[in-house]
Design a protein around this nucleic acid. Structure first.
Lengths: 207, 207
DNA sequence: GTTTGTGAATAGTTTCACAGCA
DNA sequence: TGCTGTGAAACTATTCACAAAC
């Protein structure tokens, strides 16, 4: 395998493969060919093989992929072999739902702290964490947190992002309705649910 | 403008432009150049101009883009000029949060019905709709609903997708942890929050 | 002078086809 | 024989540079 830059699209698919592999493992599947994997995750076989080839290939010719090994390898590439801790800012409806979200642990993720500005919420418990005043954001780096989740209203998003960057966060998941500006060293992934639903509308047959 | 197939990536950016334009309108901005728009939405100017050019171009050379006209045009392209109605299936934490989500109306979207299998939830009101038994899914097409939102646990996702497709839904937003198989005439957009957080981990500086 | 719209050039991604290994 | 890994080909998307419009 010669070195080539790894396509961003490949990185986007790795969690999809991980999710599929974990599910197969739960169903006690030990081995799968790229064709079988393809069926489980909805990506075609040659795409899967190509993606894995960027990392040297995980499979055995004539046999396929060992599911447990695959899970370990993808976890390692995504740096999820050690549990990643995230801080969530903004415990509204969506924020509270994420705090109660059961799926994070499966991927080696944990929401380890939650912050809000509402005094009525501060000090109360939600899904395993006690909600803190945003002033406490200062402390998150010492607490081993290196991901931020923004679930505040659009108007407050940039300010929160600045704070997160200020305390040394390098990765932000932004659920707010605003585009946020950060230094180039910080990676932002945006999830705007309303926007995705809006996009879906485009594909509908006219009428 | 010669006809060319519209890139999928362009379609993905249209809601981003719409979101940015709506925000500028709220701030009473009447006109913006591609450069100003670029700053507001985080996409570079030539990309914006190219994207708009697929639809014939919306601007005036030497002047820029009229914000109100831009909003109308993008709404029309995304077929959001008439309010789109969606049915949500699975009123758990995430489902309930989406029912209370304020942002949909801005894009001409409305969650017009919610379904669950839990008798304790059925009949109760959440964010403007009364939760119905999933058996009632049969009726949604008559009620002018043509989008589906799946917020059920992974194990039930395919079954719900089949039901939605069975009653004539052509667009599905899938929040579940499973890849779902649908006929080619149906468009599925997947949002897996845990997966996106997992991907974010990859971009973190090692340590 | 300013800013759009777009063909051409560049860059990036997917698909193919098959050599090579189990 | 069956399946992986990968160079090369085909395709798709982004960036550039500038003519045309205001």
């Amino acid at each position: 395998m010669r070195y080539r830059r790894i396509p961003d699209e490949t990185i986007k698919r790795l969690p999809v493969y991980l999710r599929g592999a974990i599910r197969l493992a739960e169903e006690s599947v030990r081995r799968a060919s790229s064709k079988e994997l393809a069926e489980a995750v909805g990506v075609n076989p040659w795409q899967i093989r190509k993606d894995f080839s960027y990392f040297g290939g995980f499979g055995t010719p004539g046999v396929g992929y060992d599911i447990d090994k695959l899970i370990r390898q993808i976890r390692r590439i995504l740096r999820l072999d050690v549990t990643r801790r995230a801080a969530l800012v903004g415990v509204g409806n969506l924020g509270a739902a994420l705090l109660a979200f059961p799926r994070f642990a499966l991927y080696g993720l944990e929401i380890a702290a939650a912050f809000d500005i509402d005094n009525r919420k501060i000090g109360t418990r939600r899904g395993g964490v006690v909600i803190e005043d945003v002033a406490g954001l200062q402390t998150i780096k010492q607490r081993g947190i290196d991901l931020g989740i923004i679930t505040v209203p659009g108007g407050a998003a940039q300010e929160v992002a600045d704070k997160l960057v200020g305390v040394g966060i390098r990765g932000i998941l932004n659920f707010s309705s605003r585009y946020i500006t950060v230094p180039r060293t910080v990676k932002v992934i945006t999830i705007d649910i309303a926007m995705d639903l809006a996009r879906l509308s485009y594909y509908l047959p006219s009428g």
